[in-house]
Design a protein around this nucleic acid. Sequence first.
DNA 1: CATGAATGAGCTTTCATTCAT
DNA 2: AATGAATGAAAGCTCATTCAT
Lengths: 203, 203, 203, 203
Amino acid sequence: MKGKIVSQIKDPDLIRKRHLQIARKTSRLFLKKGYSATGMREISKTTGITIGNLYDYITKKEDVLCLVFDVHHRLWTEHLEKNGVHAIADPLEQLETAVRRMLELAHENADFVLLMYRESKHLPKRFMKDVLAKEIELIEFFEGILRRGIKKNVFHIDDTFYSASMIVYELSFEPLRGWSLKGKKTNRDLIDLTVRHIMKAVL
Amino acid sequence: MKGKIVSQIKDPDLIRKRHLQIARKTSRLFLKKGYSATGMREISKTTGITIGNLYDYITKKEDVLCLVFDVHHRLWTEHLEKNGVHAIADPLEQLETAVRRMLELAHENADFVLLMYRESKHLPKRFMKDVLAKEIELIEFFEGILRRGIKKNVFHIDDTFYSASMIVYELSFEPLRGWSLKGKKTNRDLIDLTVRHIMKAVL
Amino acid sequence: MKGKIVSQIKDPDLIRKRHLQIARKTSRLFLKKGYSATGMREISKTTGITIGNLYDYITKKEDVLCLVFDVHHRLWTEHLEKNGVHAIADPLEQLETAVRRMLELAHENADFVLLMYRESKHLPKRFMKDVLAKEIELIEFFEGILRRGIKKNVFHIDDTFYSASMIVYELSFEPLRGWSLKGKKTNRDLIDLTVRHIMKAVL
Amino acid sequence: MKGKIVSQIKDPDLIRKRHLQIARKTSRLFLKKGYSATGMREISKTTGITIGNLYDYITKKEDVLCLVFDVHHRLWTEHLEKNGVHAIADPLEQLETAVRRMLELAHENADFVLLMYRESKHLPKRFMKDVLAKEIELIEFFEGILRRGIKKNVFHIDDTFYSASMIVYELSFEPLRGWSLKGKKTNRDLIDLTVRHIMKAVL
DNA sequence: CATGAATGAGCTTTCATTCAT
DNA sequence: AATGAATGAAAGCTCATTCAT
């Protein structure tokens, strides 16, 4: 993962700064137009970095997509840690809280989530492996909760890995399918409904 | 819907034949390489229709994507009809059967489903509306089952449209997320697990 | 050699016609500006073939250089045949005639010869092998004359391959070094001097 | 000649030092990849001089090529002086020695000679004139020997300038054409053959 | 109806050169 | 004197689309 995107620039602080700048500004472009339809010239204009200079921080257009994925992934990992979800002892409470926090995050970054489903195909293989590994990590985090809940006899499910996978999938319901409910439900209601839906399936 | 894709050709039977030919052969290309990365030359070669002739049956590259979506949608609509799901009287049995049939179809056409999530962005707006309308139709079909089940006091859920939406979303679990379970579950098990997961949430 | 330059175009006559057109017009550009300094846009303008269409007849810029080399090589091979040099029985007369004819050709295509020395580095390896093979052929042609002359006791040299190589090299004297004599000698004188120089060394 | 390459730097010793450093290191690059294909970044890396600093010692990329030519030319001039060829009284011995020394030098610097034929086109006109002037000097040196030999009735040739030009040209036989004899002749043999070839033509 | 050669805007990427520090 | 980030024109090449035959 480290040093994945090769840069011509020597100053590592500058690299970090510019990489963030590129990822943040470009993600909006990718969201609106899609990866393929977004040209390097647009990326240059949006980021405010001239095209030549841009290529001092990346080697191929792909790298920009990798940077976008990177920033977004960091967001998710950090979110659970920040909210102290790991520390909750009661599995039922922990699951509910984790799901709720993730749904909130998914709501705030709905476009991002959609982007990742849509454009992951354009990631270089090497990077794709990292992405999948992180997804598995998230699944395993939920699996851990489920296992502890089963031991304590509070959850009743046959297959923890399957259920954890499905839960993680359901977290993306709004970003991927929300359009059908747009205008019919407030965000609060949608989250409540999904929390209940998920909890019902494990109890 | 009809006549959406404008054609230079007079003979309507020929148009239908060619459109089907284009859709079927090209979908494979789009699946493998994605819409943007697939060139018209490749489409011409794969379909066996020369490039000039191809443009007698479509007006823009988009149209090819529309054709692909069209064929695939027809598949789903027809599937429920063919399997006589509409005729089942018992809501519980009907829901379980419908879900199972859809999951089987989703499994067989996993790549297609993935394609539709990925490339829908490239559809022209006009066509996109049709696509969403059809999705709503499917949701409403499931909503109908749920409503009847509630009346008969066999389902217990608060919001039928939400639940129907979520069910339809869950049908795409394997195509979109199956990679995490690849090698761990047989297709049969996966379908059984998902059927049980869905049924549990509505009972 | 055959079919070396891959083309998208189906009509083989058209390919030949355009390849010749490209080679002839572009060689002038390469002569004046060198291979690297000549852009595809210039080539497009000079040949009168639009840039996209140009790439229907070649796959890379290299190919244009190959075409130029090809045309020129054909020139040399055909020249000896046309002038009936092969048919001369007397080795001394044959050598003198062959040398004179080649010097005349070298004079008329001096720029071309220079081009080949200068830009051969940019040829793809595969093609380079063919070029060298043809050069060896020419050397061997002269070696044959020398051998027959030795048998008839008219030439006196130790090493026929060396001498043939040197003779072929000397044929390029004017194209490569003529500048130092420019204005001092007429073309006729220069050729006479070189013929005498070469003959003296083998007698 | 002096001060040709304009520099921002005040200290003339430093300029000389850096210019030598640039010429020596870069010539290897030009040999391998050619002038056009060698980038300033590569030159910077190879010389160990940062790109900005490099431009304190030159004004354009051309200048680097000039420096390379300069160093190489100095080599040739110095070589004849070092070997005391100028002091030999007997024209025949002097010619043979001069030719032999030059051939040895040409062998050791074969790549260099090739480079000069190939890349001279990229020299700025002003500098090109200097290069040609030096070439003429070398020709005239040989012409001098020939003249003295004719006076002493040991050489028999019609045109001293032509012969001297051809001799100088023949010195580059190995660098330009040696590939055809590679593996067939040792260096010693090749030099002997060429010396004999040249002497035979003037006697 | 069918063919495929032709068009040219637009793509990603490179690279000589400048300039603030 | 030295550093290296920044510039942007221009390079090679692709590709959706048109049109004469």
